[in-house]
Design a protein around this nucleic acid. Structure first.
Length: 472
DNA sequence: ATGTGC
C-alpha cells in the first residue's frame, strides 16, 4: 500500500481501483502499521469504496486490523446520496466506551485505604465472561426500558444522579433506539449482563491525575492534579455482539439487491435509508443505550463502595463511546450534509461551542477519554475547532499483537507481579487474561497521543496513572 | 470484543 506523506502526522492513500475517495491516515511514521503483519491499511482503502462515502476514509494513530473496517477507522456516508451503513464500521462491541469519574480526595489521602477500596471494588464489580451483573432482568418490558432509556432509566431507578446524565454523551440515551429490531437471542444474552464489565481489555481502574496540561479546561471537566479518579471501560456485552452478528448476516444477504459490490465480504452494508439500514441503526441505538446503562450501573456500584470506604463521591467527568455510527451534519465541499459517521475504535471529539455539548462544557469542548493499555497512562483530551475527520480522534493505545501472540510473548513474565511491582493493585483476572493485555502487545499510548495532537485532532488536558485495576 | 479459538 503506497502512502504519501502530507505532513509528519498525515499520510494519504491515493485513489485506486474502485476507491471513491482517498484514504487519510493520521499517525507518525513509527506508528504506521507494519504492512507485513497487519492489513489495516488495505482496510482503509477498502472502506473508501463504500457507496456514498464522502471526503476520505480516515484512520487514527491507533489503527490496527479489524473486522472489515480497521479499528481506529472513521468513515462518513451521505444519507441523501444512497450512503450505506455497515455493521463492520461500528464493530462487534457496539458502543464500547469509557466513563471517567472524579473523586473528592487526593492520592495521598487514599493510600491508607487503597487495599480496602480495591477489595470493595473487586467485590462490587461483576466481571469476566458470562458471570454476574448488577441487574438481572427477566421481563422483556424492563429490558426494553434499558434499551430505550439508557442511563436515564438507570438514574430513574435510583442508580445515579441527574448530573450523571448531563455529563453523558446524548444525555444518557439516543432517541432512535428500536428494541423491536433486537433479536430474541440478543435479548437473551443481554438480559443478565446489565451492569457488568465483561473481559478482554475492559476494566475498572482507580487512577490519579499525574499531570495537567491545561488548568482551565481540566477545572471545567472537574479534574485537578493529584486527584483520584475512576475509569470504567466496557460495552454492550453479548447483546451488542449478537446484534452485530445478526445484521452482518442480514446485510450479506440483501447487498446484491441494492447493487452494492464491496471488495471484502466483511464490509457488508445497506443504504442508511433502506429497511435493513434503518433496522440496524435502530438495533444499534438500543445497544448504545444498553452500554450507557451498563456503565451507569457500574458507576453506581463503584460510587457506593467509594462512599463507604473513603467518604467521597464519584462525580461524572464524561461518558463517551468509541464504537458507534451516528447521523450527524457536517460540511462537505462547502455544503452541510446529513452523514452517517461510523467511528470504530475512534472517539467523537466535539469542538468548543458545539450545540450538543452541555452548558457547563459549551465553551471548552468535549472531554475525550483515552484509556491506556494495562498498567500504562490514560489521557483526557478535548475537541478542537476545525479538526478533520468529522470531529473524531483516537480511542486508545491500539493493539499490535494478537491475543495469542501476546500470550506467547508473556512467557517468562508474571503480569500480576509486574503490575504490583509498579505499585498497581490488581483484582480479578486470570494469569492468561492478564498476559493477553500486557502493554508490549499495544502501541505506546504517549506516542499515539502525540500523533493525535500533532495531526490537529484534539488537544491534551490531563494524564492519569493507574493505582489499582479490576479486570474480568 | 464474544455463552473466546486452536
Amino acid at each position: 500500500m503506497e502512502l504519501v506523506e502530507e505532513t509528519p502526522y498525515r499520510f494519504r492513500i491515493d485513489r485506486h481501483d474502485s476507491m471513491r475517495v482517498p484514504g487519510v491516515v493520521f499517525a507518525s511514521r513509527p506508528l504506521l502499521p507494519d504492512a507485513g503483519a497487519d492489513k489495516s491499511l488495505d482496510q482503509v482503502a477498502n472502506v473508501a469504496t463504500l457507496p456514498g462515502i464522502v471526503t476520505a476514509s480516515y484512520a487514527m494513530p491507533d489503527i490496527h486490523w479489524g473486522y472489515g473496517f480497521p479499528i481506529g477507522g472513521v468513515a462518513a456516508t451521505d444519507v441523501e446520496a444512497d450512503g450505506v451503513v455497515s455493521p463492520g464500521g461500528v464493530g462487534f462491541d457496539i458502543s464500547c466506551g469509557v466513563r471517567l469519574l472524579a473523586a473528592g480526595l487526593d492520592r495521598a489521602e487514599l493510600r491508607p485505604r487503597l487495599d480496602a477500596l480495591m477489595d470493595g471494588l473487586g467485590a462490587s464489580t461483576p466481571r469476566g465472561m458470562g458471570k454476574g451483573a448488577v441487574w438481572h432482568l427477566s421481563d422483556r418490558a424492563e429490558l426494553d426500558a434499558v434499551m430505550r432509556g439508557g442511563s436515564r432509566y438507570a438514574v430513574e431507578r435510583g442508580y445515579g444522579v441527574e448530573r450523571d446524565l448531563t455529563r453523558c454523551e446524548d444525555y444518557g440515551a439516543v432517541a432512535d433506539a428500536d428494541p423491536a429490531q433486537v433479536s430474541a437471542r440478543a435479548l437473551e444474552r443481554g438480559a443478565a449482563q446489565v451492569g457488568s464489565l465483561g473481559s478482554g481489555n475492559h476494566f475498572l481502574e482507580v487512577q490519579a491525575v499525574e499531570e495537567v496540561y491545561d488548568e482551565a479546561v481540566a477545572s471545567a471537566f472537574g479534574l485537578r492534579a493529584g486527584q483520584v479518579a475512576v475509569m470504567i471501560h466496557c460495552g454492550s456485552r453479548g447483546l451488542g455482539h449478537q446484534i452485530a452478528t445478526d445484521f452482518i448476516h442480514t446485510m450479506e444477504q440483501v447487498m446484491p439487491r441494492y447493487g452494492i459490490d464491496v471488495p471484502d465480504r466483511q464490509l457488508a452494508c445497506a443504504p442508511v435509508s433502506s429497511p435493513e439500514g434503518r433496522d440496524y441503526l435502530g438495533a444499534m441505538a438500543a445497544a448504545a443505550n444498553y452500554a450507557r446503562a451498563n456503565r451507569q450501573l457500574l458507576h453506581h456500584a463503584a460510587r457506593e463502595v467509594f462512599q463507604r470506604i473513603t467518604g467521597s463521591d464519584l462525580d461524572l467527568v464524561y461518558d463517551i463511546s468509541h464504537n458507534l455510527a451516528k447521523i450527524e451534519t457536517h460540511g462537505v465541499d462547502g455544503d452541510q450534509r446529513r452523514l452517517c459517521v461510523h467511528r470504530k475504535g475512534a472517539t467523537r471529539a466535539l469542538p468548543p461551542g458545539h450545540s450538543d455539548l452541555p452548558d457547563d462544557l459549551r465553551d471548552v469542548g468535549q472531554p475525550v477519554l483515552i484509556p491506556g493499555s494495562m498498567g500504562t497512562d490514560s489521557y483526557v483530551l478535548v475537541g478542537v475547532p476545525g479538526a478533520p475527520a468529522f470531529a473524531s480522534t483516537c480511542h486508545g493505545a491500539g493493539r499490535m499483537q494478537s491475543r495469542k501472540q501476546a500470550t506467547k510473548a508473556a512467557r517468562g513474565h508474571d503480569p500480576r507481579r509486574e503490575l504490583e511491582a509498579q505499585d498497581i493493585a490488581v483484582r480479578g483476572k486470570s494469569r492468561r487474561g492478564l498476559a493477553e493485555e500486557m502493554p508490549i502487545a499495544y502501541k505506546d499510548i504517549t506516542a499515539v497521543i502525540e500523533a493525535t495532537e500533532g495531526a490537529g485532532l484534539c488537544r491534551r488536558v490531563a494524564r492519569l496513572v493507574p493505582i489499582g485495576v479490576a479486570k474480568g
